[in-house]
Nucleic acid binder design. Structure first.
Length: 108
DNA sequence: CCGTTGACCCTTC
DNA sequence: AGAAGGGCCAACG
């Protein structure tokens, strides 16, 4: 397990319930804003317990069909957490896009 | 070390 | 609006 991969998992695990994130953003937070693919690969290799279902495309679209056994599955998982979907079948990143760990150093 | 692959993303027609 | 191709970066053999 490489540091980059570890960072990705660590970030995904920090995603609060009811929120979602994108591959590109995770890659950015992990250190490589262009290694979005690496993040995806990491998700595929993600161990059990990792909320990889909270990771989506930049548009908010869900991942391939093979993931989670079907896009419907991932969608249900998100809905179960309180995530809302648009009439286009996309997630409302405007309300659920996780910006990151947000350094709580602002003294409150 | 080199070549191949990939749960991404952007650009082009 | 839909489909096709390339670039980028890291992991694996």
């Amino acid at each position: 397990m490489s540091d980059f991969n570890k960072r990705v998992y660590d970030l995904v695990r920090q995603i609060p319930k009811g929120m979602v994130c994108t591959y590109g953003h995770l890659a950015l937070l992990a250190g490589s804003p262009r290694a979005s693919r690496i993040v995806g690969a990491a998700m595929y290799r993600a161990p059990g317990g990792l909320p990889c279902h909270r990771v989506l495309y930049k548009d908010g679209t869900l991942c391939c069909d093979q993931a989670f056994g079907g896009k419907e599955i991932q969608r249900q998982l998100l809905e179960a957490e309180g995530v809302t979907f648009l009439p286009d079948g996309r997630v409302d990143l405007r309300r659920h896009l996780w910006a990151g760990p947000e350094s709580p150093r602002t003294n409150g």
